[in-house]
Amino acid sequence: NQASVVANQLIPIQTALTLVMMRSEVVTPVGIPAEDIPRLVSMQVNRAVPLGTTLMPDMVKGYA
């Protein structure tokens, strides 16, 4: 099973992502693949992302 990127904390809207905000976890449905974590650093979320939420491509500006 492929690991996805999951929020390690509440990430407020417009926040630039850092490594400490994300973790990898095998979840359903599958979100952004964990191997993309380095690419996500400094990208902004376009909505508030609660703790434990799987990051989906449409939540990160410039990802999809």
Rank of each mutant, 00 (worst) to 15 (best):
N1Q: 15
A3L: 11
A3G: 13
S4T: 03
V5I: 14
V5C: 08
V6P: 00
A7H: 00
A7W: 04
A7G: 01
A7V: 06
A7Q: 02
A7L: 03
A7P: 00
N8F: 04
N8G: 08
N8D: 10
N8W: 04
I11K: 00
P12Q: 11
P12I: 04
P12K: 08
Q14I: 05
Q14C: 13
Q14N: 13
T15I: 06
T15P: 03
T15L: 05
A16M: 12
A16G: 07
L17C: 04
T18S: 09
T18K: 08
L19E: 06
L19C: 10
L19D: 05
V20R: 13
M21K: 01
M22H: 00
M22R: 01
R23D: 05
S24V: 09
E25M: 10
E25V: 09
V26H: 12
V26P: 07
P29Q: 05
P29V: 05
V30P: 11
V30G: 09
G31K: 02
G31D: 01
I32W: 03
I32R: 01
P33M: 07
P33Y: 08
A34C: 11
A34D: 07
I37T: 06
I37F: 03
I37K: 05
P38S: 13
R39G: 07
R39Q: 08
S42T: 15
S42N: 14
S42F: 11
S42E: 09
M43Q: 07
M43G: 01
Q44T: 15
V45T: 13
V45I: 05
N46Y: 13
R47Q: 14
R47H: 09
A48N: 15
V49S: 01
V49I: 15
V49H: 01
P50H: 09
L51H: 10
L51W: 13
L51Y: 14
G52S: 05
G52I: 04
G52H: 07
G52C: 04
T53I: 08
T53Y: 12
T54W: 04
L55T: 01
M56E: 06
M56L: 13
M56R: 08
P57Y: 12
P57I: 05
D58Y: 15
D58T: 09
D58R: 07
M59H: 08
V60S: 01
V60G: 01
V60F: 06
V60R: 02
K61H: 14
G62L: 07
Y63M: 05
Y63E: 01
A64H: 15
